[in-house]
Amino acid sequence: MLILGTGDVRQVLDGAETEVVAAVRRAYLLHDQGRTALPHSVFLRFPDDPRNRIIGLPGYLGEDEPVAGIKWIASFPGNTAAGLERASAAVILNSMATGRPEALLEGSVISSRRTAASAALAAAVLASSVPETGVSLIGCGVIGFEILAYLRAVLPDLATVTVFDLDRSRAEAFAARCEARWPGLKTEVAASAEDALAAHRLVTLATTAATPHLSTDACRPGTLVLHVSLRDLTPESILAAVNVVDDADHVCRESTSLHLAEQHSGNRDFIAASIGSVLGAEEPYRRAEDRVTVFSPFGLGTLDLALADLVRRRAEPLGLGTRVPDFLPGPASGADG
């Protein structure tokens, strides 16, 4: 068993935005081509504790060298008050020859980077006729910062960021961190979510909201909303938008905004396309200039596997990680039991 901790994963992924976006793109295309297996994620929830959850995301990518495994990720929002990250995760990769687990990777970095790469890829391919020069970030946590890093990698004209968080001090600290990381980036703190929604035609929602709390009424026509946290927008806003998803069956469940919109409308006709079909199309996509477009990625486990496999392949020749040769039982002795 190869064990790759946070430091190992970061060493591979830091500065590798182009490669990570390419891995996410490839995983989306494989999914659109029917070359994946993707059971529904398993949500472990706790009685009388609606904020916290642990999710299991199994999957399979049928590439030339196929990948199978699972991400096990916990979201405990109260951790931030204790100085801990909200999310923690592990990814297991299995051998496709024997089924035995071969690698255990720290998964929160992988999860945040694939989420950011997915959002940035959508911003690039669901493009407007006018280059994006600014972005509004609602939710000033780890995911928001990673998304900004990946947006800057794929949108070279991005020069301004407007941030908002219910905790003003958190938003101000986030803005200061952005200015320290990217000195040439103009950073503003919005007074309200509505002000942030109106500031730019590219908006990212990355909050811990459990129920819808925002409409898109304040958005300019032609705005692209990267609805990463999935439960921010009202069903009415979803039904009024042009909706692009990663997988309709996955995203229309677990009380996401799209699930609520489906229950309200009785169908999924409000979903216009999947990101995989957009990527595989012969003609470039141009988003509607008179309506809001919403990209809602459920966060497919195959993206985590694609990125975990990238980390493993790059880590091994660098000698990263710890080998545990006796983690699994040795050769079978004969009869079972």
Rank of each mutant, 00 (worst) to 15 (best):
I3G: 01
I3Q: 06
G5M: 08
T6G: 11
G7S: 12
R10V: 13
L13R: 00
T18W: 06
R25A: 13
A27M: 06
L30H: 05
D32S: 14
G62Q: 06
E63F: 12
V67K: 01
I70P: 00
I70F: 08
S75N: 12
E85I: 05
T98S: 14
P101K: 07
P101I: 05
G107H: 03
R113G: 01
R114K: 14
A117Y: 00
A119D: 12
L121I: 08
A122I: 07
L126V: 08
A127H: 07
G134T: 11
V135D: 01
I143F: 04
I143Y: 01
G144A: 09
L148C: 14
A149S: 15
P156L: 09
F164H: 06
S169K: 15
R170I: 03
F174D: 01
A175H: 02
R177T: 08
R181Q: 13
W182A: 14
P183T: 05
V189W: 06
V189I: 12
E194F: 08
A196D: 11
L202T: 04
T207W: 08
T216L: 10
D217N: 10
D232A: 09
E236Y: 02
A240C: 06
V244N: 05
D246E: 13
Q263D: 12
S265Y: 02
R268N: 11
D269F: 10
A272Q: 11
I275Q: 07
I275V: 12
G276S: 02
L279Q: 10
E289Y: 04
D290K: 13
P297K: 04
F298G: 00
L310V: 08
P317V: 06
L320I: 14
L320P: 01
G321I: 03
F327Q: 08
P331G: 09
P331T: 06
G334W: 09
G337Q: 06
